[in-house]
Simulated scan of single mutants.
Amino acid sequence: MINQGDPFEGLYIVHCGMLKQSYQRRYDELITHFFLPGDVIGLDAIGYRCYAGTVATVETSGLRLIPFRCIEDLSSPEARLKELICCLSEAMHDEHTRLWQILNQPSDVKVAGFFITMSYKFRNQGCSPHSFRLPMSRQEIANYLCMASETACRIIKRFQKQGLLSARGHEYCILDPEGLTSIAEQ
Rank of each mutant, 00 (worst) to 15 (best):
S131M: 06
S89M: 08
R154E: 12
L145D: 01
Y48A: 14
C86A: 02
Q21E: 14
T151D: 09
Y172H: 05
D176Q: 10
P129M: 03
Y23C: 10
L175Y: 01
A112C: 13
C87H: 01
G126I: 06
D94T: 03
E185P: 01
T117Q: 14
I46N: 13
R138H: 15
S75W: 06
P129R: 04
P7A: 14
D73A: 15
S61M: 10
M18I: 14
P67F: 08
P77Q: 09
D176I: 09
L19N: 08
P77E: 09
L43M: 13
A45N: 01
L11P: 03
E78A: 06
E90P: 00
G163A: 11
G5K: 14
P129E: 07
F8L: 10
K157G: 04
A112S: 15
E83S: 05
H130I: 00
I141R: 02
P106A: 11
C16M: 06
Y48E: 15
A56Q: 13
G5P: 11
D39N: 14
R26M: 04
Q101F: 00
S75I: 09
F35W: 05
I71V: 15
L19W: 03
R26K: 09
I174K: 10
E140H: 13
I141W: 00
A56P: 01
C127L: 03
H170M: 12
M118P: 04
C127A: 05
D73M: 12
E72W: 11
P37T: 04
F114H: 09
N124F: 03
R98F: 14
Q101D: 00
Y51S: 08
F115L: 04
T117G: 07
A167W: 11
R49I: 08
S89P: 02
D28I: 02
P106L: 13
A167Y: 12
Y12S: 06
F8A: 10
H130A: 12
Q160W: 05
I102L: 15
L134S: 02
L134Q: 00
C173I: 07
A91L: 04
K82T: 08
T54A: 09
W100H: 12
P67D: 14
I102V: 13
N124I: 04
N143E: 01
H93E: 09
N143I: 11
R69T: 13
S107D: 04
I31F: 08
S131Y: 06
S107N: 14
N143Y: 00
K157R: 15
G5F: 11
S166R: 12
G47D: 15
L99I: 12
A142Q: 05
S149N: 15
S128N: 04
G169S: 15
W100A: 10
D94P: 00
C173H: 14
L175K: 12
Y120A: 09
V58D: 01
I174T: 00
C173V: 12
N104F: 12
R25L: 07
E171N: 09
G10V: 08
I41E: 02
R158E: 07
V58N: 02
S22N: 11
F115E: 10
F122P: 03
R168Q: 11
M18G: 08
G47I: 12
M118H: 01
R64M: 09
S22E: 15
A148H: 05
R64P: 02
E78P: 02
